[in-house]
Amino acid sequence: MTEQRSGFPRRDAEGRILTLGDLLGVSLAGVVIGLLAVAVFDAGFVLIGDGEFGGANGWLAIILPAWLFWDDFRAWEFGAARVVAALAAAAVGMVAGLVVAGLAAGLPPLLSGGLAAAAFTLGFAVVWFHGVHWLARRTG
């Protein structure tokens, strides 16, 4: 773990993201990019006469952060630590996302889903990062 790969997010030699700030920054940027992509598709459907703008599901913005989380999950050694951390992070992320979606229920689906995706991303990233590092120190 002495060597570090260049690029962003910063990773160690095994490919694990080094800091919570890097994980949060890249994953939240992924939510924004995903939300913009969904908005473009939604606008395209509006142009061809299929619905009103904002009707697309904003939860789709979770695709890029989920891909990043999966990549970091695979970088950790096989074992219980990464599975337990991932399950706990998924539970916290889902609860956070669903609470935010419920609070934003009056907004268009694109916006309420986007806010929920951001809440899921924040909850998952914080619990995943701290959980996997703490459990890896305990078991390894």
Rank of each mutant, 00 (worst) to 15 (best):
L87D: 01
A90L: 15
A88C: 09
A85Q: 07
A43W: 12
A88K: 08
L35F: 14
V40M: 11
V100C: 12
V95T: 11
E14P: 00
F78D: 11
I33G: 02
F41A: 07
E77T: 09
A81G: 07
L103T: 00
L35N: 07
D50V: 10
R82L: 08
D22T: 01
I33C: 01
A90H: 09
S27L: 09
G49C: 05
M94W: 15
R74D: 10
W59A: 10
L18N: 02
A91Y: 04
I48H: 03
I48V: 09
W76L: 00
F41W: 03
V31A: 10
V40R: 04
R11G: 05
A96C: 13
D50H: 13
L24Y: 12
L98T: 15
V83P: 03
D72T: 03
A66H: 11
G58V: 12
A85F: 07
V38K: 01
F78Q: 13
A75D: 06
A39F: 08
A104L: 14
I62G: 02
F73Q: 00
A29G: 14
L23Y: 05
G97V: 04
L18M: 07
A43E: 10
D42A: 05
L87Y: 09
E14T: 02
R82Q: 06
V99N: 05
A104Y: 08
V100T: 10
